[in-house]
Structures are given as structure tokens and as C-alpha cells.
């Protein structure tokens, strides 16, 4: 591995470790409101200052990283798994199944999402704990974003289905499902990895927008999305550049992650 790769790995490890050790590193709990010092500038007690309600920004950033770091990749994995399942089945089976799956994908891409998510929120019980709420959010993100990936994977699977090695596998008596799982799927890994990389930052940002619909993360739990939403207001950054910390951390995290892990996918 190159020096750059190594340092990216170290950085990545540091970010993950820091977020996991948030309880030890953060000077205060993410929800404690120091109401006497709202909007504090960075100082010894609050290394990154405090937010409008006097909550420690560093603590919120660390805990927020934990939430987003764990859940965004998990949701991305779910989304890719669904894309793969639907895409491969459609591509391999062909015929009406393929047409149905692709029609469903078209439908999914063109659905009025806002409206649908509102309905989803209306169906959920009101009393969900913040953790359950964020879990549901990412679950939804993962479950609903399969369509574009499924299209890509479907065409990949359709091409592989006609390959010589698939024919040989069948000629040696391999049953259909096993053929998909053991022979075709491994060839689609690079495609799926690409889907995965695109999904992570997308999900982190969508989570913040879903908050507007009452679906995102609930008070007082922090998330990167919520912290990023704070800097939508350009007038505030000028006065307080510390607000950019989550954006910088997210960028660093994603570039390192990609740098380290995408090496494996040749």
C-alpha cells in the first residue's frame, strides 16, 4: 500500500475510533444544554464552541459521526443488496419478471417521494424513540433507493447470463439460484461497490432533508445531516467558521473510505 493509502487508513481509523469513543472523548453529553453559554466560541471547555441551545458542538459532532458512520453504510449496504437481488433476478430470469421489475424500478424513480414519505410518517406511531426514528429513516432510505442500482445490475446480469461460463455451470448441473448466487453475483461486485459509494454521502444528506418531514433524526440526537443543515444559512458561517467542521469531517471521511476500500475492488 502507498503512503497515501496508509495515511488515509490511519485517518479513517482515527475518525471511526473517535466516534466510537465519543463517550470518553467528548467533554459533555450531546444533549446537555449549557443554557448560560449559547453560541459560545471555541474555548477550553467547549473546543468547538456550543450551538444555539448551549450544547457542546464537539460532543454533537462525535456522537453525530457515530450515528451517521454506522447507519449510512448500513443503509447503503441494504440498498445495494436490494438492487442486486432485484437486478440479478430480473436480468437472469428475463421475460415478464424482468419487465415487471424494470417497470417497478421506473415507477420508483418517478414516484412523488415527498408525498409518499409523508404517508409513511403518517402510518408510523408518534412515539418512537430518537434511535428508533433514525433507524427507520435509514431503513427507509435503504429500502427505497434500490431502483437506479437495480437497473445497472440488471443489465450486467443479463450480459453475464449469456456468458460461456454461465452455460458451463448449467451444463455441470448447477441449479438456477445457485448459479445466480455463486457464479453471476461475484462478477457484479464492482458494479455493486460503485453503487455503495454513491449511496453513502447521498444518504447522509437525505437524512437531514427527511428531518423536515418528521422522519429524520429526532431531538436531541445529533447526526451529520442535522449538523450540516446548520450551515445552509451562509450568513452564519462568516461569523463562525467552526460550523464548517462537520462538512470537513464528512469530506475527509468519504475520501479516506473510498481511498482505502475501493483498492480492493481492483
Amino acid at each position: 500500500m502507498t503512503t497515501a493509502g496508509k495515511s488515509a487508513g490511519v485517518l479513517l481509523f482515527a475518525i471511526v475510533a473517535a466516534s466510537l469513543a465519543a463517550g470518553y472523548l467528548a467533554p459533555a453529553s450531546y444533549e446537555t444544554q449549557f443554557r448560560e453559554s449559547p453560541n459560545a466560541s471555541p474555548c477550553r471547555q467547549f473546543p468547538l464552541g456550543t450551538d444555539e441551545l448551549g450544547r457542546d458542538r464537539l460532543a454533537r459532532l462525535l456522537y453525530g459521526s457515530r450515528v451517521s458512520l454506522l447507519l449510512a453504510p448500513a443503509a447503503a449496504a441494504l440498498s445495494v443488496a436490494l438492487s442486486a437481488l432485484i437486478g440479478i433476478t430480473a436480468g437472469y430470469a428475463g421475460g415478464w419478471l424482468e419487465r415487471a421489475a424494470m417497470a417497478a424500478a421506473d415507477l420508483f424513480v418517478s414516484l412523488p417521494w415527498l408525498f409518499l414519505l409523508l404517508t409513511v410518517r403518517a402510518l408510523l406511531p408518534l412515539n418512537v424513540t430518537p434511535w428508533a426514528s433514525i433507524l427507520i429513516t435509514f431503513l427507509l432510505l435503504g429500502a427505497l433507493s434500490w431502483a437506479p442500482g437495480a437497473r445497472v445490475i440488471r443489465s450486467g446480469a443479463a450480459a453475464l447470463k449469456h456468458s460461456e461460463f454461465a452455460l458451463l455451470a448449467r451444463a455441470s448441473g448447477c441449479p438456477g439460484p445457485r448459479l445466480l448466487w455463486k457464479h453471476i453475483l461475484p462478477n457484479l461486485r464492482p458494479l455493486m461497490a460503485a453503487q455503495f459509494w454513491i449511496a453513502i454521502p447521498m444518504f447522509i444528506l437525505s437524512e437531514a432533508n427527511l428531518g423536515m418531514l418528521g422522519l429524520g433524526i429526532a431531538e436531541p440526537l445529533p447526526s451529520w445531516g442535522g449538523l450540516l443543515a446548520e450551515i445552509q444559512d451562509p450568513g452564519r458561517i462568516a461569523g463562525n467558521p467552526v460550523l464548517l467542521a462537520p462538512a470537513i469531517l464528512l469530506t475527509v471521511f468519504l475520501s479516506c473510505f473510498q481511498f482505502v476500500f475501493s483498492k480492493g475492488d481492483r
Binding site: E164, F165, L168, A171, S172, G173, P186
Partner: peptide
Amino acid sequence: MRGIRGREISLVPQSPHSALNPAL
């Protein structure tokens, strides 16, 4: 047929390289 393929009747395909799965 699944029981026959590979056990009773086997195939050695035409082009060796493309008949092997590159990912396995």
C-alpha cells in the same frame, strides 16, 4: 436434466478461457 448434466453427460466447452468464471 439437472441430475443428468454433469453426472451422466458432461461438456467440455469450446473456448477454455471464456468458459471459466473470471471472478472465481
